[in-house]
Structure formats: C-alpha cells, structure tokens
C-alpha cells in the first residue's frame, strides 16, 4: 500500500516539472509543517495509550526487569548503529 502514494507522488512531481511557473515547494513546505504537527501529536496519543495498556497487562512486579531490558535493548543498538554509521561515513569523506 505504501508504494501506491509514492508512485502517484513521483508521477505528479514529474508532471509539475513542466509547469515551472508555480513555486509549489513553498506551499508544500507549509503543508508538510501542518501535517507533521498533527502526525506527531497523534502518534504521541497512540503511544501514551499503548504504554498504559501494556502496563496494565504485565503488572508492576515484572516492571523493573522489563524496564532494564527495554532500556538496554533500545539504547545499545541505536548507539552502536549511530557510531558505526559515523565511522563508516566519516571514513568515506576523509579520502
């Protein structure tokens, strides 16, 4: 499903290249700003709900074990991935 809007968008974008008189990028940037605002708020609401729902299922006892696992499994792969990308991309730039 995700590919359909992508293909439609690419097609419209190519068509718009022929109508250079309209500066669509200005409109698009404002539109993106509004959508991002709504989207982030909605994702936050769903996340808040999910957190509450999951907490009510597992109970408080296993919470500390879960918190440690969640923290480590989130932070360590992200940090290592970021530092590897930093190393790989910087090495590419140095040459």
């Amino acid at each position: 499903m995700i590919y359909l809007p992508l293909i439609i968008g690419l097609f419209i974008g190519v068509l718009l290249r022929f109508i250079k008189k309209i500066n669509i990028i200005r409109f698009i940037n404002r539109f993106i700003m509004v959508i991002v605002f709504i989207l982030v708020l909605l994702i936050g609401i769903v996340t808040g709900y999910t957190i509450m729902m999951r907490l009510s299922i597992i109970g408080i006892q296993t919470l500390s074990t879960l918190a440690i696992e969640l923290t480590l499994l989130t932070i360590i792969p992200i940090a290592i991935g970021f530092y590897i990308s930093l190393a790989i991309i910087r090495i590419g730039r140095v040459k």
Binding site: I7, L10, I12, G13, R17, I24, I32
Partner: peptide, 9 residues
Amino acid sequence: TIVAITIAY
C-alpha cells in the same frame, strides 16, 4: 505523496 512530489520535482 507530497514527499514523492518534492523528490520528483
């Protein structure tokens, strides 16, 4: 869709 439009444009 909008992002794809921007990219293609």
